Amino acid sequence: MTKVHKPYVIFEDKDHKFVWLGLDESEYEKGILTNQYLIVDGDKGVLLDPGGYFVFERVYENVKQFINPNNIIAILYSHQDPDVIGSLNLWLDVSPEAKIYVSALWERFLPHIGVGGIKIVDIPDKGMDIKCNNIMIKAIPAHFMHSPGNFHYYDPRAKIYFSGDLGAAVFPEGKWYLFVENFDEHKKLMEGFHKRYIATRKAIDLWLKRIKDLKIDIIAPQHGSIFQGENVKKFIDWLSSLDKVGIDLMEVDFQQE
């Protein structure tokens, strides 16, 4: 029987919400399970990595529980992968006023998925602040983790950090949980992805410097489970401890051939 998980409000304070937009563990949502998020501030909304074609119906129906899709003013993309941007043309139909925020590196690729005449805002490599009604969402550079043009998004009111593919976990069939409880067990599900997909250890070091002054209560990744409380620090410490990743590992493999 297909498991359907309803949306969950991760943070709520008066007129501000940060919402996880549910999950459908069906064969129809093909590939690795993905997370989508909605920030609501007043009567305006912002979508974070709304996902591929197959998840659109589920995400759209769940968004409507919190806000009129016509009031979505921004769609923020971490990078260019199809599980991130594949539903863009569908969202343009239901949220025509939304501006699309994406790395300047990937802006020219978006027309290749069949969209045109869209309001694209190029995010410069150094990042930027994005106005959402009464708050400013920060686009944090996370280049080469894994995409060369990659951004995370920080909601300063909720103190929630959307980390894109950083924090991704690959679950065995039949296993899934929304929040990390046992970090030592969970890190086993993350290790393979992070060692292979993060380009180099230098990318981790640069990212650590960029986030060191942020107050982060929750880290919400696009794949896997959400980190809160002490598991936020455990996750950051775990990333800090990774020695060889990406090309560093491949260099070792090449030398051993």
Rank of each mutant, 00 (worst) to 15 (best):
M1L: 13
V4C: 04
I10N: 04
I10V: 15
E12D: 07
L21Y: 10
L21Q: 08
E25D: 11
Y28L: 11
E29L: 09
E29A: 00
I32T: 15
D41Q: 06
D43Q: 09
K44D: 05
G45Y: 04
G45N: 08
G45Q: 03
V46L: 11
L47H: 05
G52C: 07
Y53I: 11
F54S: 08
E57C: 00
E57S: 12
Y60V: 01
N62V: 02
V63H: 10
V63E: 05
Q65P: 01
N68H: 09
P69M: 11
P69N: 07
P69T: 11
A74M: 00
A74I: 03
Y77K: 05
Y77D: 01
S78T: 15
H79N: 14
Q80E: 06
V84T: 15
I85A: 10
S87I: 02
L88S: 03
W91R: 07
E97S: 14
K99T: 04
Y101S: 04
Y101W: 12
V102M: 15
S103G: 06
L110S: 06
V115D: 06
V115N: 06
V115I: 15
G116S: 14
I118T: 03
K119P: 07
K119L: 10
I120C: 07
I120D: 03
D122G: 12
D125M: 06
G127Q: 12
G127S: 09
M128P: 00
I130K: 11
K131S: 08
C132A: 14
N134L: 02
N134D: 15
I135C: 10
I135Y: 02
M136T: 09
I137S: 00
I137A: 02
A142R: 07
H143P: 01
S147L: 07
P148E: 14
G149H: 10
G149S: 07
N150I: 01
D155P: 05
R157H: 04
I160T: 13
F162R: 01
G164F: 02
D165Y: 06
D165V: 03
D165F: 04
A168R: 14
A169Q: 04
V170L: 09
F171N: 10
F171M: 09
G174Q: 05
G174M: 05
W176S: 09
W176F: 14
L178I: 02
F193R: 03
Y197V: 08
T200F: 02
R201Y: 09
K202A: 11
A203Y: 01
D205L: 14
L208A: 07
K209V: 06
K209W: 03
I211G: 05
I211R: 13
I216N: 15
I216C: 05
I219T: 10
A220V: 00
A220I: 00
P221V: 08
H223G: 10
G224L: 04
G224I: 01
I226Y: 09
E230H: 06
K233Y: 09
F235L: 07
I236K: 10
I236M: 09
W238P: 02
S240G: 13
S241V: 05
L242M: 15
D243G: 11
V245H: 05
I247V: 12
I247S: 13
D248Q: 13
L249Q: 10
L249S: 08
L249K: 14
M250P: 00
E251R: 04
E251K: 13
Q255V: 03
E257P: 00
